[in-house]
């Protein structure tokens, strides 16, 4: 870890990536480990495919997910419609593919927001300590006290008339999830800030923002990345849960949770429109959680 310490004070190259010219850095070690892990490779491929699906759904299906024909509702799978038709006569395959975008967008944006908000506040709390830390830490405890999905349900159902449904899901999940990242970042920064290289940088006259972003952040980032990757899968599952309960993504937008919800009432008559999105949802969540596990093993060998 100390390899990342000695940044020349005059360096203006903020974007310069240290791991590239320091072969023995944590990051390059991790990458070396990861490439050799089957779990990582499999989940990375799955995620790659899912991302492609989200970015370019028409690559997978040429059928319009909203071209529905009620007269052929609940039709069994056929050549043109691999997964059959749902209760409104829409193509299940095409809808499942197109739903990936909303689910992944919600997962990724929520993860980024949670990491940025929780991470920043956690670093500020740890760095300034005393009052700042006390106030912020108590605040996170308040949020911790709210049970996750119930709180999101409350937020989403209260504001659902005012905001776009996808945005609302992101906001409600973020509001309830940032404290976890906050705690992890805070703990990591507290550990890092008493180390010699930080003391040295301070003695050389580094200001708070330089200390935080140049010295503390790179050394506290690993655990946040690990938790974020795992959380990404969790957020996608949470989105599905909210949509299933009717407060998440709203029609005409498509999401896996919504598809499951729409199909459940006729599950006994027509199980496929429920099973396919459920399988996709499970695979996606599994892929992100596997990736998170692999990244944790690589970045934090102590936990192995």
């Amino acid at each position: 870890m100390s390899s990342s310490v000695a940044s020349p004070p005059q360096s203006g190259g903020r974007h310069q990536k240290k791991q590239n010219d320091k072969p023995a850095s944590l990051w390059s070690d991790a990458w070396y480990d990861l490439r050799r892990k089957p779990a990582f490779v499999i989940s990375a491929i799955l995620i790659g495919v899912l991302l492609l699906m989200a970015i370019w759904p028409t690559l997978f299906s040429s059928v319009d997910p909203r071209a529905c024909d009620l007269s052929v509702a609940r039709q069994a799978p056929s050549a043109g419609h691999l997964f059959g038709r749902d209760n409104l006569g829409c193509d299940v395959y095409s809808r499942t593919i197109h739903a990936a975008r909303n689910s992944i967008v919600i997962g990724v944006l929520t993860t980024v927001l949670v990491a940025v908000i929780g991470g920043l506040l956690g670093m500020v709390a740890a760095f300034y300590a005393s009052m700042t830390d006390t106030v912020l830490s108590r605040l996170t405890e308040i949020f911790f006290a709210i049970p996750g999905i119930l709180g999101a349900l409350l937020i989403a159902s209260t504001f659902r008339d005012q905001i776009n449904s996808i945005l609302l899901v992101i906001v409600s999940l973020t509001v309830l999830s940032w404290p976890m990242t906050f705690r992890i970042m805070r703990a990591a920064v507290i550990t890092a800030k008493n180390q010699d290289f930080v003391v040295a940088a301070r003695a050389l006259g580094a200001g708070p923002s330089r200390l935080m972003f140049r010295h503390l952040l790179p050394n506290a980032l690993a655990p946040v990345i690990v938790v974020s990757t795992i959380n990404l899968g969790v957020f996608i599952a949470a989105e599905a849960a909210l949509s299933f309960l009717g407060v998440g993504v709203q029609s005409p937008d498509i999401s896996w949770g919504l598809m499951i919800s729409d199909a459940r009432d006729r599950f006994l008559d027509a199980p496929l429109p429920l099973i396919f999105p459920a399988v996709f949802l499970s695979i996606t969540v599994l892929a992100f959680i596997m990736l998170g596990d692999a990244v944790r093993d690589a970045l934090d060998p102590k936990l192995r």
Binding site: C68, L88, G89, C90, Q250, S251, P252, D262
Partner: peptide, 24 residues
């Protein structure tokens, strides 16, 4: 009512070429 309202929304969307939002 959700199902028939969604079915009606699909009808309007496809047949009239408009955006339709079913609002619960």
């Amino acid at each position: 009512h959700k199902e028939w309202i969604e079915a009606t929304a699909n009808n309007l969307r496809q047949n009239l070429g408009v955006e339709v939002e079913a609002k619960p």
